[in-house]
Simulated assay, not measured.
Amino acid sequence: MSEAIKNRYEFTILFDVENGNPNGDPDAGNMPRVDPETGYGIVTDVCLKRKIRNCIETICEGKPGYRIYVKEGVPLQRSDKEAYTYLGTDEKDIKKMKTNDPELDKKIRDFMCQNFFDIRTFGAVMTTFVKNALNCGQVRGPVQLGFARSIDPVVTQEVTITRVAITTEKDAENKKTEIGRKYIIPYALYRVDGYISANLARKVTGFSEEDLQYLWQAIINMFEYDRSAARGNMAVRELIVFKHDSELGNAPAYKLFDTIHVHKKDGVVAPRSYHDYEVTVDEDKVPEHVTCTRMI
């Protein structure tokens, strides 16, 4: 594996949606997530990580060390068993083996981190190992995202749709169309801030410079390879990266994020495109020993 990163990073992503549902809430009929107090739109960190995972799986298909642990159709226990196979044991003998090998936890953790990009990046809770009283079951990843929030309050629209295909023979005797509903946001620009700890990368997962470049590529393209009817017009518009000169960092994260300003252009009341906004970075206010790069 490549050497772990040596610099701390913070980054900000701006992405938008047009006539779509960026993150439906299953507890609310799949309506777009909205903060009920302010009306601002929300997209969860889990949703964004899913997009990044899917993108990595696409651009790194078949590349050793870049498999995805949390993925559809693959039980986590199945992937966990690979570590036991690698060590030449199984769940039944693991406690006995741990008694004889104090480094067992580290060996399992390192195996999982080396083989699965998302464990190396975001960390993971590996229930199989937790149940067997192994300390490697919970891995804290160096890359963390918050919730994305829209720049302005959003308006959710319920759109009635019809189809000519009837579900059952009985229904076909009485009607010629069926009615359904879908929820959209006409337009919204979202912002999410992220953090990368070089300290955790070195001590825990081994997240490397090569991993970092793939992460930037996946963030930039996370909606390009994941189109659907609900998310047809979504795009990452900005990726602003702050690189510290050291492992532990040279400035508080909030000071860096405060240099980014997003606001509507003069005369715009209801934004309907990214061009209705202006994005600026006060680079002269970025602290010493921190470099700001606008990657898009």
Rank of each mutant, 00 (worst) to 15 (best):
C60E: 11
K264A: 11
M234I: 04
F257I: 09
A83N: 02
P153W: 12
G73D: 07
F147R: 08
N233D: 13
V281L: 09
E209N: 13
L239D: 04
G39K: 09
L189P: 00
T85Y: 10
R231L: 04
I119N: 01
F15G: 00
A270G: 02
K182D: 01
R149Y: 14
T205C: 07
P64C: 06
G206A: 11
G267T: 11
Q114F: 02
N115V: 05
E3D: 15
R202T: 14
G194M: 03
A172H: 11
R50K: 12
E288Q: 15
K106C: 06
D27N: 15
E247S: 09
S2Y: 09
A230E: 09
Y254N: 12
F223D: 00
D284N: 15
E247M: 14
A198D: 04
R50I: 04
M222G: 00
P22H: 04
I185P: 00
P36N: 09
R53E: 12
V192E: 08
H261A: 12
D45W: 02
K98Y: 06
A253Q: 02
V43F: 06
Y225V: 13
K106T: 13
A218T: 01
I196F: 05
R163L: 05
L87C: 04
K255L: 12
K170P: 00
I219N: 01
I56P: 03
F223S: 00
G123M: 07
T99H: 10
A165I: 14
E103Q: 10
S273Y: 04
L200Q: 09
N132Q: 13
S228V: 06
E10W: 03
Q77H: 12
Y274P: 01
E3S: 14
Y84T: 04
K6F: 06
A270D: 15
Q114H: 09
L134D: 09
R120L: 09
G65N: 07
G141W: 01
E158G: 13
I220D: 07
K170V: 13
L215I: 10
R120M: 08
F129Q: 12
D90H: 04
D118L: 05
P186Y: 11
D35F: 03
V70A: 14
C292I: 12
C113A: 05
K106R: 14
F11M: 06
D284L: 14
E169N: 13
Y86N: 11
G267K: 07
T99F: 06
D211N: 13
T127V: 15
A229R: 10
T127F: 05
R149N: 12
L248D: 12
P64M: 05
D282G: 05
V262K: 03
Y9V: 01
V17T: 12
N115P: 04
D276M: 08
T85V: 14
V279A: 07
E283M: 11
V192L: 11
N30K: 10
L212A: 06
K203I: 13
V139K: 03
D110S: 11
H244W: 04
P36R: 07
I42F: 03
P271T: 10
T162H: 11
